[in-house]
Nucleic acid binder design. Structure first.
Length: 649
RNA sequence: GGCUGGGUAGCUCAGCUGGUUAGAGCGCUGGUCUCAUAAGCCGGAGGUCGGGGGUUCGAGUCCCCCCCCCGCCA
């Protein structure tokens, strides 16, 4: 079975940002999965290099246009290599074979009457490379998309009979509900097409940086419209119009796009294909945008996330995992270091990494790293069948293009592993001399990790290869077939002791977004969130200013009353006089060291401006200062009695 | 203004064709084991399911009205 997966080709007007990385990560994951299950897979990405905008950008930098395109294209190419993206081809619209293919397509459309010559007059936005009808223009004739001034252009142009495909397209959408994903986007496209389609101007005479028309048409002044040129890349990459040896990969299975370019891919592209007599792709899947800390990213705000920077700081695969796990496909996602760190610590370090460490430790102690699965089925039928079920479900989520659900589902395997260890407590079994049982549990968990690693491999290829190595097997189509499809277990194997794969991340590893951005974001909510999350305001040398210290209000308080909190062995509920109108209720975890009675009428130090918190359902309006070491805990108190409410500092 | 989609626990979301005490993850919190990365496991708090009306034996789930958010179009 053939499986062709594409990303959009990225416009070389600027360097790769987080959105490019996201699309490419998803496509790479799908491609890797496809290869792993043994499908014949072709994964295409590349760059879109034509158009007036590129021509102008190159001029601004005083570079030949081709050189400019080469340079930017290389930055994408290099980044994907750095990110270990497993593309089969990196196409460039300046490739000769691509140009040849586009010309062949143009000619075919022309010959079958779908392209005709006429005049176009309208308000043209150079920046967006789009004509806009009068009615859509903003005040002063500015572009409704970018707000820049438009110019009136009348030019000879070839047109594509898009209008002819209005009905066929609607019929196709109707007959193929899975064509446009997610569904909400599908509705948008349908209603747009229902609104009527105008024929599409597909050539320009106003600039020359593009694919020229086929020579047989003898139209040297005309250059192809950038979208016709660009969209065709998906088939010219397979050799359309030149060496067609790979055309058997067509139609594509999944064509990933950002939501901003959906219309081109869901309307123009299928119409072109219909005109060429080619089948339509199975899915056009539109994903959402990324914001940063709840704010739209923009160069002027200086809050753009550089994927390379994130990757360098946190690791590509952790980054990949985060992006795919964090946000439901199609929705906008928010990037913040806090969210990334939380995912890494909670999912990767705690659930997965720690589980691996647990069995490394046990296998070392109990059997000198030697494990075999022969007793697993005897003691762990339930776990094995539950996991088999989970893996099946997870797989369907991936096919449905719901990577977040797929990962969420997969993580249940680790919970089962952690629970199994807890329930079967191998350390107890060992003490009781039931070594077989203990080792069966270790082997079970090793197998669960092996199976989950295989499934996780498309998302984190290198990391899972390390896990597999530690467990003495290799991830491949063969092991996928054996462990996932056939439900086999690993044979006897030796575990390798490896250092933790996912060390916990205690604090942000990248500099925070520039101050300007934070100040521009007066959202009280966002601010409170940052404070809640203890984003450090401490300077690099670890010192704070006196002003910062005095943000904390510490006061002398007199304990008026104290009682034990029911059902808690640690908590005491205190009534403390801080010289205010009424005493405060403070819940303190000191019961193990102080009895309630002994505290009444003594003095303590209280942090008085702490945000109230609830402990065991009881409101606590402050914190009692205490010092703790191995000997125990003691309260910090004034040497001599002071007035209640006296400040400390 | 028109049309989608949506408003469910502090946060992010799941809840199919209406049916027992509305769920998950994270966060918070109490307890507990010791193989392990201050990890794991067990338990708890927390929701008038945007608001109002209606249909029904029964509605987060259907109908009507209103409010708010995103998106597309104008």
């Amino acid at each position: 079975m053939k499986n062709y997966i594409t990303t959009p080709i990225y416009y070389v007007n600027g360097e790769a940002h987080i959105g490019h990385a996201y699309t490419t990560f998803i496509a790479d994951t799908l491609a890797r999965y496809s290869r792993m299950v043994g499908m014949e897979t072709y994964f295409l990405t590349g760059t879109d290099e034509h158009g007036q905008k590129i021509e102008e950008s190159a001029q601004k930098q005083n570079k030949p246009t081709q050189q400019f395109a080469d340079e930017i294209s290389a930055t994408f190419h290099n980044l994907w290599d750095e990110f270990n993206i497993s593309y089969d081809q990196f196409i460039r619209t300046t490739d000769e074979s691509h140009k040849k293919g586009v010309q062949a397509a143009f000619l075919k459309m022309f010959e079958n009457g779908d392209i005709y010559k006429d005049f176009y007059e309208g308000n043209y936005c150079v920046s967006c490379e789009t004509f806009f009808p009068e009615s859509q223009l903003m005040d002063g004739g500015c572009c409704p998309d970018c707000g820049r001034p438009t110019t009136i252009v009348k030019e000879e142009s070839y047109f594509f009979r898009l209008s002819k495909y209005e009905r066929p397209l609607l019929e196709y959408y109707e007959a193929h509900p899975e064509f446009i994903l997610p569904k909400s986007r599908r509705n948008e496209v349908i209603s747009f097409v229902r609104g009527g389609l105008n024929d599409l101007s597909v050539t320009r005479t106003s600039f020359s940086w593009g694919v020229h028309l086929p020579e047989s048409l003898n139209e040297p002044r005309h250059v192809m419209y950038v979208w016709l040129d660009a969209l065709m890349n998906y088939v010219t990459a397979l050799g359309y119009g030149s060496d067609e040896s790979k055309m058997n990969f067509w139609p594509a299975n999944v064509q990933l796009v950002g939501k901003d370019i959906l219309r081109f891919h869901a309307i123009y592209w299928p119409a072109f294909l219909m005109s060429l007599g080619l089948p339509l792709p199975k899915h056009i899947a539109a994903h959402g945008w990324w914001t940063r800390d709840g704010e739209k990213m923009s160069k002027s705000k200086g809050n753009v996330v550089d994927p390379r920077e994130v990757s360098n700081a946190y690791g590509v695969e952790n980054f990949r995992y985060f992006m795919m796990r964090e946000v439901p496909f199609g929705q906008d996602g928010d990037f913040s270091q806090r969210a990334l760190i939380d995912r890494m610590n909670s999912d990767l370090s705690n659930d997965l990494g720690n589980l691996l460490n647990r069995i490394i430790g046990m296998s070392e102690k109990y059997s000198d790293f030697n494990v075999d699965s022969s007793h697993v089925a005897q003691y762990h039928v339930k776990e094995l069948s539950d996991v088999a079920e989970i893996l099946k479900t997870a797989e369907t989520y991936l096919f449905e293009l719901q990577p977040h659900r797929y990962l969420e589902e997969l993580w249940r395997v680790f919970t089962i592993g952690n629970k199994a260890i807890e329930e079967h407590a191998p350390w107890t079994k060992v003490k009781e001399g039931r070594l077989d049982e203990a080792l069966a549990t270790v082997a079970l968990v090793a197998n669960l990790l092996a199976k989950a690693s295989i499934m996780l491999h498309p998302v984190m290829p290198q990391t899972t290869a390390k896990i597999a190595d530690a467990l003495g097997f290799e991830i491949s189509t063969e092991s996928y077939t054996a462990l996932i499809k056939n439900g086999d277990l690993l044979k006897a194997f030796t575990i390798k002791k490896i250092p933790p794969l996912f060390p916990r991340v205690e604090e942000p590893l990248m500099a925070e977004a520039p101050k300007a951005m934070i100040e521009e974001a007066p959202k009280a909510e966002a601010k409170a969130k940052m404070e809640d999350k203890k984003v450090s305001t401490v300077s690099e040398d670890g010192l704070i200013t006196i002003d910062q210290f005095f943000q904390t209000s510490i006061k002398i308080g007199t304990v008026l009353d104290a009682e034990e909190v029911p059902k808690s062995s640690k908590l005491l509920k205190l009534k403390v006089d801080l010289g205010e109108e009424s005493p405060r209720q403070i819940v303190a975890g000191i019961r193990e060291y102080y009895s309630a009675e002994s505290l009444i009428n003594t003095q303590v130090c209280v942090v008085a401006n702490l945000k109230p918190a609830k402990l065991m359902g009881l409101l606590s309006e402050g914190m009692i200062l205490a010092a703790k070491d191995s000997e125990g805990l003691c309260l910090v108190r004034p040497e001599k009695p002071r007035l209640s409410g006296s400040s400390v500092g």
